[in-house]
């Protein structure tokens, strides 16, 4: 502990000890684990350093248990935002695996590293100036023509998307297939990092979906109808009812609302 006095030879701060104690203290808070109750432990290697962590944790919470604090490369924690991309290898296996840290459970002997960001240039375009033509995709992403159909992107995708299929759909100019197959993409960047042809698949898909939406995808008829109804004033009365009440009245209305028997 540092001396509070003004002595000329201050005791050197043992920063490592301090950080260890903070990590120790926050372990349970951050990962929600009570150590005494943990039955199964595994060893994982984060960027080459070994840590013993409870076996039931995800990579994300295991790293937090080990003392890592995420200020980048973390987001929704639900497998949806694509921030916590992780590359790992399992013990004794040569295959390079990918996954979202928040969705992947730790395994004994895992070697892992985070890829919080995939470097990629985002070209700016005005969707209104673009034609509905396959050449637009090549104009902004000429590297798309380098695809060798090796399927590495598909193997890398943590969402189990058929990435090669949608890239091929882009090359063929089949916007509908491109939009459909890439719909669930969370833009985690793992495909782009591994691609030997240096294509940024998710950027291509995004432009493709935008073009498809602008030019080709069927108009949502039910939405159009609803907007008409609103314009015609079909919901004016109900809106009045809700917006003219006080907060207390609304709370009471809520408490008294009709609902299923428990």
């Amino acid at each position: 502990m540092p001396n509070k006095g003004k002595s000329s030879t201050k005791k050197k701060l043992d920063l490592k000890k301090i950080m260890d104690r903070i990590a120790e203290a926050s372990k349970q808070v951050v990962s929600g684990v009570e150590e005494e109750k943990v039955e199964n432990w595994v060893t994982i290697h984060v960027m080459g350093r070994a840590y013993e962590v409870p076996a039931d944790l995800t990579i994300l919470t295991a790293m937090e248990y080990a003392g890592y604090k995420f200020i980048r490369g973390v987001g929704c924690r639900q497998g949806f935002c694509g921030a916590c991309s992780t590359l790992y290898r399992k013990k004794g296996e040569y295959k390079l695996q990918t996954g979202m840290a928040c969705q992947t459970r730790v395994e004994d002997g895992m070697f892992l590293v985070q890829i919080p960001f995939t470097p990629a240039e985002k070209p700016s375009y005005d969707i209104n100036d673009l034609n509905y033509d396959v050449n637009v995709l090549f104009r902004y992403y000429p590297e798309l023509a380098r695809c060798v159909s090796c399927n590495t992107c598909t193997k890398a995708c943590p969402q189990d998307l058929e990435v090669m299929d949608y890239v091929q759909a882009a090359i063929k100019g089949n916007f509908e297939e491109l939009a459909e197959e890439s719909f669930d993409c969370i833009q985690c960047g793992l495909c782009a990092i591994r691609c030997p042809s240096e294509i940024v698949q998710y950027n291509v898909a995004q432009l493709g979906r935008r073009l498809y939406g602008r030019y080709d995808s069927p108009e949502p008829e039910h939405l159009k109808k609803r907007l008409e109804e609103i314009k015609e004033g079909k919901f004016d009365e109900e809106m009045e009812k809700v917006t003219k009440h006080s907060r207390k009245e609304l709370e009471q209305m809520y408490a008294e609302r009709k609902r299923e028997e428990e």
């Binding site: 060798v148 159909s149 090796c150 399927n151 090669m164 091929q168 090359i171 063929k172 030997p196």
Partner: peptide, 22 residues
């Protein structure tokens, strides 16, 4: 069904296999 781009050109070096995958 599910065809992919053939690559347009045949890869001419002796050691290259990846370009024959497509």
């Amino acid at each position: 069904p599910r065809w992919n781009c053939c690559g347009t050109v045949y890869s001419l070096t002796d050691d290259d296999l990846i370009h024959h995958v497509a």
